[in-house]
Design a protein around this nucleic acid. Structure first.
Lengths: 233, 233
DNA sequence: GCGACTTTGTGCGCGTATTCACAAAGGCTT
DNA sequence: AAGCCTTTGTGAATACGCGCACAAAGTCGC
């Protein structure tokens, strides 16, 4: 996030920036920013701030963005297509080495300048291009199987968009992006603003510590009556 | 996440589940799971576990998923298209009321059964359909402007995919999903496995607490070649 | 060259999240 | 009906992240 804010400053021709300004741009507290940056070393100048260009370089280096990373995208549905065309990857040193799918009607198509290849060739492509990061954008049912294959082929970092918890051996990193969970979190807060669950049983004070037993409070029935019984029993 | 794991159990016809099993499925510690669930009330049976169907209902209700939420998607590029076609929304009570874009060559197109409408009609659509959640999938430059408009029109929850920090008034919730940051995080860990920044200056022990001063840290020379000197010096 | 001013780097305290570990609770078997 | 066995719910301990506040460090003006 700091890198993003710094790039933006760089575009505007700003040469130096104080922790206060950069923190505001990144949406964090300035003390936190200074502490974070201090973990990289002491790159600021007291009384002045940080030199933008130098800081960009140091952060990029620490994040490993000064080298190229080879990525394979598994699953070329709507999401896979969006990822293939996402400009944010190339600009940060991520090179997409392959788009792979199991569907023969998709294999061979040209997407964002790349040809979709059959999933059978997964292992070849990983080995040939030195893929170290796999992006899984398959349906949930296929995700674990694909994950196992990429890991077996030597990939040690996985970005998972499928709504499942992937299990991997030690030494393999997995990150998960779950679009519908993000919406659910928003819906939860939205509901809170409107006055608690179903507008009749507000959560006390916040989620943590709030022990709101559904005291006789029958929760609205979807499958219906049985739940009311369950609560009242 | 618990809801997702429970749905999966439900599909397999499992009637009851212990905290241990559910925690494993969701990828968390079982004590944490029990504490989380206890905040909703006491819905487990000692010696037995939790009834899957009942728990699904209680969590859904607490999250506000027993009611419908109306969503507008702003920006119909690759990502907007993927979101429009994402099945995970409808199945959790999220209804897409509109796809909006500023590009006349996109307006009028049919995507996933919905017609893309011009951004001029944003305020109408929000008011007419009672949109409470806006999804921003525009380019970075347009995001803050669109955010201001949806907030002015009464939306109080925003899911932002654009790589900028949105500023909003108090009372409005913003969540951010940043695809390239996820990849950068993976790249960082990948680099760590391979032996630190550039393979010559490993971070000590971990990020927090690691004060890897750029020993002999001479100040701040701009220009790529000089950075290498700075590090090697 | 010196003093005032600005801004970094960080010690400290606070609140929260996470985990352990166990007593209480309930079902199941005999 | 009584006791055993399983599993929950939670107090206590620990770990962690965040922000405040300030001393140290460096710049800029005079």
């Amino acid at each position: 996030m700091y890198l993003r804010a710094l790039s933006s400053l760089q575009d505007r021709g700003v040469a130096t920036v104080s922790s206060e300004e950069l923190a505001a741009a990144a949406g964090v507290n300035s003390a936190k920013l200074r502490k974070d940056l201090s973990h990289l070393g002491s790159y600021g100048t007291r009384g002045v701030g940080y030199e933008v260009e130098y800081l960009v370089y140091q952060i990029s280096r620490e994040l490993g963005l000064t080298q190229d990373w080879v990525v394979a995208i598994i699953g070329v549905g709507n999401l896979g297509r969006a990822l293939a065309g996402y400009g944010g990857f190339a600009s940060r040193g991520f090179r997409v080495a392959g788009l792979l799918d199991a569907d023969d009607s998709i294999v061979g198509q040209e997407i964002s300048g790349m040809t979709v290849r059959h999933i059978d060739r997964l292992e070849d492509i990983i080995a040939d291009h030195g893929v170290s990061i796999a992006v899984i954008a398959t349906p949930a049912a296929a995700a674990q199987g694909m994950c196992d294959r990429v890991v077996a082929a030597g990939v040690t970092s996985v970005l998972n968009f499928a709504p499942v918890v992937l299990s991997v051996p030690d030494g393999v990193d997995v990150r998960k992006v779950d679009l519908s969970i993000e919406l659910q979190i928003l819906a939860f807060h939205e509901q809170r603003k409107a006055g608690g669950p179903g507008d009749y049983e507000p959560v006390a004070g916040g989620i943590p510590g709030a022990v709101v037993a559904d005291a006789a409070g029958d929760g609205a029935p979807p499958g219906a009556a049985q739940y009311i019984e369950a609560v009242e029993a």
